[in-house]
Design a protein around this nucleic acid. Structure first.
Lengths: 331, 331
DNA sequence: ATAGTATGCTAAAACGTTTTACCAAATTTA
DNA sequence: TAAATTTGGTAAAACGTTTTAGCATACTAT
């Protein structure tokens, strides 16, 4: 039970060198040292099974190799997938992600951010909505913490950003539906949409113009379910669900109402989360490169960490329509 | 741009007291101090907007208030939900979860655990499989780090554990199916099942005995899809998918094969993840109290942190059958 | 031979807390 | 009134690194 922590001092003693030398060599600054010294240090390290104390290290370097990640809902497979992409890159670079789930209380977002700052994260990836909160942005500026915002870039932000081509996605969905003969369409989206969601809508609206029925519903299955009432009271034949969860809600609601997809209504979603494939009928949707989106965000953050002064960058990844069986040509 | 870090020293100076006093008071050890001193310290803190440096604090206290969480696949909504439950409790207590996703390379699990240890986590929640790896266990013992294992408890482990009543779940599924007249059933599960999965199987087998067709398939949709071939070549009428993802795979495979659920085959799943509700037909399944499972694990870990010497505890949460529309009585 | 320059290494400061051990003054007890 | 105790506080050590500044010694060039 005598757990004596092994410190750099022990290694130095065993190697017959100074603490400084051990530190330098172990950190790769080997230029100024002899072969022999280097060998001895590594040998001692191995023998003692020495690993530097994380907190002591961080205290002096001020780098935690910790990245804060904020998502609105990790139980939405889209964000789980996104997180996986982020983690993929981060881990390869020796960084680790601290995941915070906003779940409802997005007002508290600034509270979480404060906490993340306290814990000494080196940077943030914000895939959540309430970034609009100016106070967050200022807190980050104050600490000069780099961050990447996902899908939330407003034109004025001087901040790195990565997003999917939401506008084009909406447009593709609309073009596809129109080509198949659908004259009138509905789109269901939240009342106060975040930027990315609004872009999808705008892309869609750019082709459907006035022949568009807008129905409000939250970004969840119940949001979609709640929207069907208005839809079945209209004369539209196609529905654009602003995300897949809403589309699934429509599935449920429409079934309850005795309507068939795609016979009565064609529906296309957005995201391409995995249930799209095993729902009935499989959902035609606009696929985001979700994993890659996460990777890209992480890469961009790593990039900024290495060169803090470079110009804010913005990356837009393409989306594509994946055709399954929830859409039919209107005869 | 002159970002001078505010330290406890600054607070001490402003309050006209010693560093020691400030530290004590701010940490709630106010007994030995006068009202006046206390007031002054708080005032100074507020005025300077002082917050203790995380790493300096940790370096001396050795507590990170960080909990490592290992899951096999965060994109499975089950684990996302579980994580939410964990986070719910942890955050309320001022702790934070470090989520690691094992995704495939479970051999690397011990590598991740090492990393978690290096980063100074105060404890671990392991919902992953390869805990069998003895070396992990030893590493943790060596550092005397508390951990909770989920769904992986083998009889011999002297470790805190929380799990769902997997055996009973399997049994409930079987009883239900049998009652509806199904004489022969199949169960699909991985070749080398983890403990929890085996328990489900055993519970199911305890009622079906010999009339049981065992088909192997991984814990994913593709695992279920791959299993249908063997199933349609048999004379069984009911299928127990050892988790919901497998069930969804069966949905896809059976459809391809031109079979209908529940008319041709009744299927029941396990977990009750959210897609169960919007798949067609909605999936009858054994519901785990997923969120609560996570909460319970977190609570138990907090408990052990506070009293390291208490006896290892084991908690089993009940599961229940939720009937939807993927099962029919056999006429 | 002498100045200059690599080469190989180290002592000590710094990072910002918590904790330990102790002290002086004021109050109580005998 | 002397001794003991309580009250309100502090100085300094410790935590385990990285980094800065510098120091011999040996080699090179003039």
């Amino acid at each position: 039970m005598n757990k004596k922590k092994i410190t750099i001092k022990d290694v130095a003693k065993k190697a017959g060198l100074s603490i400084t030398s051990v530190s330098q060599i172990l950190n790769g600054n080997t230029q100024r040292f002899s072969e022999k010294a280097i060998k001895k240090v590594y040998a001692a390290q191995k023998e003692l099974n020495y690993v530097p104390d994380f907190f002591a290290q961080r205290m002096v370097t001020k780098k935690s190799h910790l990245i804060g990640v904020l998502v609105p809902d990790i139980s939405n497979p889209f964000f789980a997938q996104l997180f996986l992409g982020i983690q993929d890159i981060l881990n390869k670079q020796g960084y680790v992600a601290l995941l915070y789930n906003m779940e409802g209380d997005e007002k508290q977002e600034s509270h979480y951010v404060e906490d993340l700052i306290r814990r000494g994260v080196d940077g943030l990836i914000i895939a959540s909505s309430a970034f609009s909160d100016q106070s967050i942005y200022q807190a980050l500026q104050r600490e000069s913490l780099p961050m990447i915002v996902m899908d939330q870039k407003t034109e004025t932000d001087m901040v790195d950003a990565v997003q999917a081509d939401n506008y084009d996605g909406g447009k593709q969905a609309a073009l596809y539906l129109q080509e198949l003969g659908h004259k009138k369409a509905a789109v269901v989206l939240p009342e106060n949409p975040t930027v990315n969601v609004r872009k999808r809508y705008e892309g869609f609206a750019s082709v459907y113009g006035d022949e568009l029925l807008v129905v409000n519903g939250e970004l969840s299955t119940s949001g979609g379910q709640g929207a069907v009432k208005k839809i079945i009271n209209s004369d539209i034949t196609a529905i654009f669900a602003i995300n897949d969860l809403i589309a699934f809600g429509l599935y449920m609601g429409l079934k309850e109402a005795g309507k068939k997809i795609p016979n009565d209504y064609s529906v296309v979603g957005f995201d391409d989360i995995s249930p799209c494939g095993y729902v009935t009928p499989p959902l035609t949707t606009i696929a985001q490169p979700t994993f890659e989106l996460g990777q890209e965000a992480a890469k961009m953050l790593m990039g900024r960490l290495n060169s803090p002064q470079k110009e804010p960058e913005e990356k837009i990844l393409p989306v594509k329509l994946v055709q399954r069986f929830s859409v039919m040509p209107l005869k």
